[in-house]
Amino acid sequence: MGTTPTLDEIRTRSEELGIEFFFAQFVDMYARPSAKLIPAWNLDDFVENGAGFAGFAAGEIGQTPADPDIAAMPDLASFTPVPWQPNLARFACDITVEGEPWPYDPRTILKNMLAKAGAKGYEFKIGLELEYFLIRQRDDGSIEIADPLDTLEKPCYDLRGLTRNYDFLTTVSKYVNGLGWGNYANDHEDANGQFEQNFTYEDALTSCDRAIFFRYMVHTIAQQRGMLATFMPKPFSDLTGNGCHFHMSLWKDGTNVFLDEADPRGLGLSESAYHFIGGLVKHARAYSAVTAPTVNSYKRLKVGTTISGATWAPAWISYGYNNRTQMLRVPGPGRVEDRTID
């Protein structure tokens, strides 16, 4: 993680960019973002006291209507200018209640686990692959693929599909790269109307903050063009679903602890990486309640076929080398991909 900027540095940067408002943004246990809009003149109070919310109204975050208000406290390191709205920036926030960290805040839970790793000298890094559909809503409320010409049985990597959506995809790409996130590839995925846009891996907290903002970005740009975007795991029963694959590695003193080029099993993994895989395999059924938490999630994680001929989603607790049918795929030396996550 980089150095956290000071309040004065944030104020100066905001004035240089012409920022007039800030989003105080946090997520519930389903990663649904909530926010308040804070005028820039109130930055000092926002940083000191946070933005108040009725927690129960904001989603699943461990509160009832009888609980005290939550306060969204901005993490200054998460300062993110909103590319399509030049006078607006976003802060990812941690939730507190009566001055104490709220134990059911997903960002706080993640920070606590990363702190435990950090106390042992480790840094957990992840790269995320967020798949999504571009759709339109019919008059009767049902949905359809936004591109009526996207009808191939095997549309993955379709050149014409990319061309028809060039404006949308390149706008997202330019915004992501303008933020310094390193978008390095954009593709048409396996289902009709499905896309994926990749950016470089970072420490886990930074990557997750970026993932939340990326989804918000895609939703907003789609709506600006008369479409909707959905990251829902399985919006169409006959098409491949959306995953949010995590590519994970563990680092210490700038060295990838998961990497071992001399791995006798030939996967390029260290014994620590195999122990990591063993823990995921042992606890797969339990942790899937968090990584794939909805009924719709399990419509993706099952044996079956789609129009393209494959679901590309795991159904068994397993691991293997560069095999996309596995729950845990080893796409290359020194990292492990979890394909259950949505």
Rank of each mutant, 00 (worst) to 15 (best):
A117R: 13
T3S: 12
A273P: 04
W251P: 00
W316P: 00
P81D: 08
N192F: 15
A51E: 03
F214T: 05
F214I: 06
A185P: 02
H188R: 12
L228I: 09
E9M: 14
P101Q: 05
M1T: 06
G180M: 05
E129D: 13
P81W: 07
Q223N: 09
T80S: 10
G268P: 02
T340F: 14
G178A: 13
N186Q: 15
V218G: 01
N87S: 13
V47N: 00
L259S: 03
T291K: 08
T64C: 08
Y319E: 02
M327V: 09
L76G: 06
R225A: 05
A273H: 10
M232T: 00
P331G: 14
I145H: 00
Y104D: 07
G62L: 08
L259T: 01
N192I: 15
L17G: 02
L162C: 07
V218W: 09
E9L: 14
Q25T: 06
Y216A: 11
M217H: 00
I212A: 11
Y184D: 10
T96H: 14
W316A: 05
P5I: 10
K234Q: 04
Y298T: 06
E123S: 13
Y175F: 11
E271W: 06
D190C: 11
T325K: 13
N42M: 11
F79S: 01
R215C: 04
T96E: 11
A89M: 05
R285D: 15
G62Q: 09
L88H: 11
H188G: 04
I143M: 03
Y298G: 08
W312P: 00
D45V: 05
M73Y: 11
F53T: 08
A284S: 13
G50R: 03
N42E: 15
Q85N: 13
I109A: 12
R138N: 15
S78A: 08
S297K: 02
E153D: 15
P5M: 06
L134C: 03
P101L: 09
F91C: 03
G2I: 09
H219E: 05
P101H: 05
G278I: 12
F236W: 02
K36R: 12
F53I: 12
L130Q: 11
Y201M: 12
A58G: 09
D253R: 04
M73P: 06
L149M: 10
K174L: 07
V218Q: 07
L128H: 09
I109Q: 15
C93R: 00
I341Q: 14
I317M: 02
Y104H: 11
F195C: 11
R265P: 04
D8N: 11
R160S: 12
G182W: 04
D158F: 04
P81Q: 05
F214S: 02
F91T: 02
Y157H: 08
D203F: 05
A119T: 10
E202Q: 14
A315L: 00
T12P: 07
V176E: 00
R90Q: 13
G304L: 13
I10T: 03
M1V: 08
T230C: 01
A262Y: 06
A262S: 10
Y175A: 07
T151Q: 09
V172W: 00
V290L: 14
N87Q: 14
V47L: 00
D253Y: 03
A292L: 14
F26K: 05
E100P: 02
H283W: 13
R138H: 15
P148M: 11
I317V: 10
V172L: 14
L128E: 06
Q194Y: 10
S34E: 15
